[in-house]
Design a protein around this nucleic acid. Sequence first.
DNA 1: CAATGATCATGC
DNA 2: GCATGATCATTG
Length: 227
Amino acid sequence: MITPVENIPASEQALIEKAQSLAGLSLGEIAQQANITVPKNLNRDKGWPGLLLEYTLGATAGSKPEPDFPELGIELKTIPINRQGKPLETTFVSVAPLTGMVGSNWQNSHVKNKLSRVLWVPIVAERDIPIPERIVATPFLWSPSPEEENLLACDWQELTDMIVLGEVENINGRHGQVMQLRPKAANSKAKTDAFDKHGRPFKTLPRGFYLKIPFTQMLIAKHLRIG
DNA sequence: CAATGATCATGC
DNA sequence: GCATGATCATTG
């Protein structure tokens, strides 16, 4: 497995330069330099690309509830894309609290905090490309523009309102313009506390906020280098 | 064939 | 169970 090491970037500039120096490299090359074995498939190693990049860029590995680069306030996210730069998957943001949100708002939400500064590392990762041959595209640092934040805040409010009204089980992946609420659990038997529409507590599947593909696709398009 | 709902590994 | 890292795979 992948374990942390002490090559923590000293500055935002150093981090970005290090990340961009990886552009064009394959996961196999990066893994080799790190002395890490590449899995044959990701069935049982779904988080492997993320962990590899965390390790390579000097992020703090593990399950700490902090940004990947605490000193810099930057979150690292790898995102699989096709050769045209379109994301192949939605992007997990954070688990959705289903209780105790009285008084919570967009400004103090985990979602806003998580997405305040993100170092995106796109990886050309079409399914027919073997893992070691998948190529890192151009990493870029992003913070939401006012327009982007408005979209996120709107969706956060809509989904949070439904949760507060006890309608969490009526929420599906179609809700939200750019951000959706979907299961986030080990399996469908996992349960967490929530409230129904009568205000009665009950157990339900844990959910997470995910960025929809058109949204992340737009971010990548905005940062495309033409050359 | 894209998207929604389900799932996998790890640490504490 | 929850928080970290995500992708799988069935379905509409």
